[in-house]
Design a protein around this nucleic acid. Sequence first.
DNA 1: TGAAATAGCACCGGCTCGGTTCTATATCAT
DNA 2: ATGATATAGAACCGAGCCGGTGCTATTTCA
Lengths: 168, 168
Amino acid sequence: MVLYGPQLVTRPDKGQPMISLTRKSDYALVALSHLARTRETVCSARDISDHHKIPLPVLMNILKKLSREGIVASVRGAHGGYQLAVDPAEVSLGDFITALEGPMRLVQCADGGAPTSCSQAPWCPVQAPAVRIQQRLKEFLAGVTLAEIIGSELQAQSDVGRAAEGKV
Amino acid sequence: MVLYGPQLVTRPDKGQPMISLTRKSDYALVALSHLARTRETVCSARDISDHHKIPLPVLMNILKKLSREGIVASVRGAHGGYQLAVDPAEVSLGDFITALEGPMRLVQCADGGAPTSCSQAPWCPVQAPAVRIQQRLKEFLAGVTLAEIIGSELQAQSDVGRAAEGKV
DNA sequence: TGAAATAGCACCGGCTCGGTTCTATATCAT
DNA sequence: ATGATATAGAACCGAGCCGGTGCTATTTCA
């Protein structure tokens, strides 16, 4: 196997790494959920930055990228800003993570192209399983929609129930 | 929200980050699947290193840590080495990723303790959903056992079938 | 015409990751 | 006993990404 060159993202509070979102993806999630809740109106980066105390320049970079990727639509000029470009039910966690961080792959040799650079791919016993796990992970992330995320705020009760029942 | 301090691991080939295993977890997966396939015998780090072309010192560090965490058992001295300490069906991807990388958390404010340091946790609209998603992700990773990973080599055919049917 | 806002790019420091090295300890074989 | 083989543990190092900042250009409204 042998992974990519550069990495579910992983880092804890002080040094211990782990499965987690990058700060960029975190901010994006906050921003998108904000935009999803103000569906009709145009929000400037400053609006969102003020509401959620996200560093303005950083947030702008993120919104620019999400705009280029077609997830949000931008309106330039004074009174400009951003709006969700797609239905919240149609954007998943996987979508905007991919948009911001690039294609995800559990291991480098599992991205279905590129001869891998891993000298032992041909007889590697882990490659095939890794590809399958990666596929399931992608499907999992693709299944978590923005609509579900923001919607659940209102129905947290029932969702907690679902989780407890193990319906994951 | 606002994440941890450091990050499922994410990095692509050349600079673009993503959801992925760290190299350490990757090597661990290879090593563990090797040990799982040689269940009865003791394998030295050198054996595994030679078979899979993993840098020996790195692999040793990984095995030492897995040993401290109780996932593998070590035998010291000449002819020493490592053995799986648990049943392959009882070790999950989540188990050894956690053992190597520390506890995983999607975002810093979601680790169920520690007052977060995030100034807006109290009214953050994303925190609660993030905690739920994180829980589902953990359950997903806990559900992928080593037995399933190595077992699937032999039944790749049928597993591909399963995946195609969407039974994820 | 100027203020406000996005577009795009280039830059920078800290810190994690991946890897190496050294010392100590334990066990087997000669 | 002694040396070869192996793990235990800790410290160290460089490259590169992540998170963040700044600047310039362009678009639009008042």
